[in-house]
Design a protein around this nucleic acid. Structure first.
Lengths: 251, 251
DNA sequence: TCGTTAATGTTCGAAAATGTTCTTTTTTGT
DNA sequence: ACAAAAAAGAACATTTTCGAACATTAACGA
């Protein structure tokens, strides 16, 4: 006979490699009753480690998002992202109160900021951590429910709380700019961004040039509502001409 | 070298390579009674070297999510803290909405919770991280300004936002219980705790028995306002008698 | 040597883990 | 849709482990 935790560990191993494990199988392999295995499965399910189904248990399927994961995305177009981030950072002045939304580009903004005092609001853990390093900055994290994929807080409470915040400048990353619409891939994050834009004097859209002509799932706002679009200089000239009619393009 | 130390060394070796070790196995191998092995395990656990489980012990999984200043504190009275945490966890029922405040004791509560669905609210990063692991729990972090030392959110916004939250049960750690007052060491955290207690149906104070007779800097509330004080069984009998007149003592 | 203290062993009631039995629910085959 | 078969779950029984209290043994200095 073995220890309970040891059994749990082996159950997890088996499920990991076989994806599915029958109660009867497990009982025989581990030399205990099926009842015990059921109790083990129940415990492991409560821990959020497996999914129980009639007759056994299976590996927990993580929700598949269309978006690339945080770390994967980061690798792409670093040079362009840094360029854009630097342009954005130049717009930030001493004693500003700014919002910085989640995004792989916006994360670089911190590196180029050159002010001695600043108030920063964000719902992104990565952004928060970066700015938190600097003791001269007053940083506020908007909490709520965590969207694991992007390490960003979203949902009812985040929306509610973000309404309390008024900022001078908002920097919002985006997944697509098409026609007169600015769009993002995630519904929940989009909801937050819309509120932020309403509560900001200056509204900056941060995007690399590959996002022009891309239409993502969720509309954030119209192009004519933003103060400027900040992008890199690989933006095709036809897009540049088109959007310069509507709003400012910084690149 | 003493016999006892020799045994301890061998126990650690065995656990290191096998990850698990039964009391009975160890007893046979080392030629001593199971009682002795239990005493050894107990000692080694208090040294923070292994984790004891029913029937044996296992290798300690290092918690990487807690920062240094915390881990130091944590080494003290582990046994009592776990005991208290377990008592607290038993009060948590399926589908509850609970608040868990920052603290080295409250962090252990997670380990003893046995429900399949739960809503958790906290302003502590450590607590948030722990509960976030479990996909069956709905976890809300209250943001704001970060108090680095305890990795806890405090300040104007935290207070404001926490007012939006109503919970069934609040678990609040404390630094001192003296006379009819419950006190804490930090003014900003105290302010948050006061609000939480107002918005909770059941108010549980989590504390180890060494805090009785200690008066910290900031008053949180009066003893008669709380539902129960959860503490360990080393509480001096005169305190126990005194406080049992005013509120419930769980230990 | 003795007396003192620390370590280990023993006993036993309580608690935890596991097993058993029987009933209810789900699945499956027709 | 139905009945038979398989699995799950509730309640109770059994076994194992724990830990407190006390007894015994070993260790060591005066």
């Amino acid at each position: 006979m073995r220890l309970r935790d040891e059994r749990h560990k082996r159950i997890l191993q088996m499920i990991e490699e076989k994806l599915f494990l029958k109660v009867s199988e497990a009982a025989e392999m581990l030399g205990v009753t099926e009842m015990t295995i059921r109790r083990d499965f129940k415990y492991l399910e409560n821990q959020g480690l497996i999914t129980r189904i009639h007759g056994g248990a299976k590996k927990k399927t993580k929700d598949q998002y269309i978006e690339l994961s945080h770390t994967e995305k980061k690798a792409l177009n670093i040079k362009e992202k840094k360029y854009v981030a630097e342009k954005a950072a130049k717009l930030i002045e001493n004693n500003d109160t700014i919002f910085i939304g989640p995004g792989t580009t916006t994360e670089f903004i911190y590196d180029y900021i050159d002010v001695s005092s600043l108030n920063v609001i964000t719902n992104s853990i990565s952004i928060f951590n970066r700015f938190q390093e600097n003791k001269n900055f007053n940083v506020i994290l908007i909490g709520g429910r965590l969207r694991e994929r992007t390490k960003t807080f979203v949902g009812y409470f985040t929306s509610k709380w973000i309404r309390d915040i008024k900022v001078q400048k908002a920097f919002i990353g985006t997944n697509g700019i098409d026609g007169d619409q600015i769009t993002t891939a995630d519904e929940e994050e989009g909801a937050i961004q819309r509120i932020v834009l309403k509560n900001s004097n200056y509204r900056y859209i941060i995007t690399d040039s590959t996002k022009f002509g891309v239409c993502a799932f969720q509309k954030i706002c119209n192009v004519n509502e933003v103060t400027a679009i900040i992008t890199d200089n690989k933006i095709p000239v036809e897009y540049k001409n088109f959007y310069e009619e509507i709003c400012k393009i910084i690149n």
